[in-house]
């Protein structure tokens, strides 16, 4: 939550009611993704992905390209983290079982698991 919309300290007091309202709406709105994990540490991942194996993160990213797709298995996407510096791209795997209609340039909030070998496995996603 901190990482998704870090409020300015000065306006924290004014925004609290709005945040409460937003949280309520998020809980009530069906299909709406909620940031349930830590934000994905892009630099750490690029530096040593094996160190993040087994962790779960939340990543807001824009779909850059579909690298590969195999029917019945899923697709590999390259995404651009919205928080990272320009140019950085991460590969994520979206299983077919998620039945997501993904297109380039769409922005999603991705619930990720860093699996063996550093694979970023998308467990859930929500369009931003």
């Amino acid at each position: 939550m901190r990482s998704l919309s870090p409020p300015a300290a000065a306006s924290r007091r004014l925004l609290r009611p709005l945040a409460v309202l937003t949280a309520v709406l998020a809980l009530l709105g069906p299909g709406c993704a909620r940031q349930t994990h830590e934000p994905f540490p892009v630099p750490a991942y690029l530096e040593a992905p094996e160190n993040l194996q087994g962790n779960r993160y939340t990543l807001d990213a824009e779909i850059d390209a579909q690298l590969e797709w195999r029917e019945g298995v899923g697709r590999l996407l390259s995404v651009r983290p919205l928080s990272a510096e320009a140019g950085a791209r991460l590969p994520v795997f979206v299983a077919d079982s998620l039945s997501a209609n993904l297109m380039v340039a769409q922005r999603y909030r991705l619930e990720l698991t860093v699996r063996r070998g550093g694979l970023l496995h998308v467990n859930a996603l929500r369009k931003l």
């Binding site: 992905p49 690298l67 070998g117 694979l119």
Partner: peptide, 8 residues
């Protein structure tokens, strides 16, 4: 044999 990291 870490294709995901290699892909990254």
């Amino acid at each position: 044999d870490r294709p995901a990291a290699a892909l990254t």
